[in-house]
Design a protein around this nucleic acid. Structure first.
Lengths: 220, 220
DNA sequence: ACATCACTGTCGGTTGTGCGACAATTAGGA
DNA sequence: TCCTAATTGTCGCACAACCGACAGTGATGT
């Protein structure tokens, strides 16, 4: 049981090819935290709450959102191997965003008062953590570029290319995509209609299928 | 001479209140790198080049830009205490962006083959580095929110509030602001005219003066 | 089978912003 | 001092995107 978690942590935390973790490091990490499970729609933590723990996402997708002036805005969506909640924790400030499980989520919870001594004692873990953070930073920077000065069609095309699974399906409602890109639902619909017309995708109920990745890329 | 740099590094690298560095840590950091100076307009590193070093900005402002499909896009602007070039370095990939000195810049250069052993040997430094990275991440996430679903006037108001120095001056041309926000120069001009009309700012050649921060905030 | 709810598709009216163009102003060097 | 380059200020036009509204369609539970 515990072995499984160790194996998973070794495989997915940060980059596997980089700085292999020793069994001791791994054991220390495993002992410092605990595996938790979250049902769809439940929160791992909420914006403004006291930051008492950071999480490593083991399975599933977590959505990070933040209350805007009117509607909540989605800061990002992270999956397997991502670290969340650490920004607030290290700065000793309340959580800066809310983390909601989109599907069933398994995560590894690390308590604040255990995490710091752990990282101090195991430099390799600290470096891994660092790399995970920088990974997230680079991803966010790319998102900025994807949002700036691009039409909705281009944004949608890029998003679908990112989000499509192995079968080319994207399981998102048009409203969700709208919130994700910070546009209106109608505009998404219009954009999808255009992509559909050029045979790049097909649309269904809560589902979009990528038919031709090249045609899709041509729109981005 | 060296003492000065040590003092600076202790003061400005990451958060001072957090995890005070021991003299040993500091000395190790100082020995692993070297202080460099850059003239305005010169590059610390360029996009696509081999990532052989990371930098800690000691003084001045550095602009991070990335080649877009047509025009270069500005990923961010960082100042004193920020760490740059580390994303690419830790991932062992070419630099993602170009770093250009906007004014005279003093920086601390850390070689790749010295940085890793250093961080492995000094956990406190690794944690400081981590916090600096997360700082940058949070800043970038805020930037996403600032760009999404906001009018140009709101964006300009927020930018001026961020960028104003102690006298309320912002030394940027309208074109620069336009690139920074990913909009057109004309729109910036129009936005500034509106802010000027409501007595929030005053404009001059390559310079904008914030007259009333509250009036400015009302526009954001 | 039916009712209900969530989601998709589509329509005009309105607003914000990009773009081209051009005049006016400022800074800095010959 | 004058000349030149850079920057600012201001048009009008075109287009992309938002908004409200409403009909059509798929999913779900009683």
């Amino acid at each position: 049981m515990e072995e499984q978690h160790y194996a998973w942590l070794a495989k997915s935390f940060g980059r596997t090819d980089y700085l292999p973790l020793s069994p001791e490091d791994l054991a220390a990490l495993g002992e410092a935290g605990e595996a938790i499970e979250k049902y769809p729609g439940t929160y791992l933590f909420r914006e403004g709450a006291d930051s008492d723990a950071a999480y490593i996402v083991e399975k599933g997708t977590v959505e990070l959102s933040r209350e805007g002036t009117d509607r909540p805005r989605i800061v990002g969506r992270v999956g397997e191997g991502s670290v969340i909640g650490d920004i607030a924790l290290f700065r000793e400030q309340p959580y800066y965003s809310s983390a909601r499980a989109l599907g069933p989520v398994t995560a590894f919870r690390l308590d604040r008062n255990k995490l710091l001594p752990l990282l101090m004692a195991h430099p390799k873990l600290a470096l891994r953590w660092l790399v995970a953070g920088l990974d997230q930073l680079e991803k966010t920077q790319r998102r900025v570029l994807r949002l700036m000065n691009r039409t909705v069609v281009q944004q949608v095309a890029a998003l679908l290319d990112d989000e499509a699974d192995q079968y080319g399906d994207v399981h998102l409602s048009q409203s969700s995509i709208a919130t994700l890109l910070g546009t209106s639902r109608q505009s998404i619909n219009e954009a999808l209609a255009e992509l559909k017309k050029s045979k790049a995708v097909d649309t269904g109920y809560r589902k979009i299928t990528v038919l031709n990745r090249d045609a899709l890329a041509a729109h981005a």
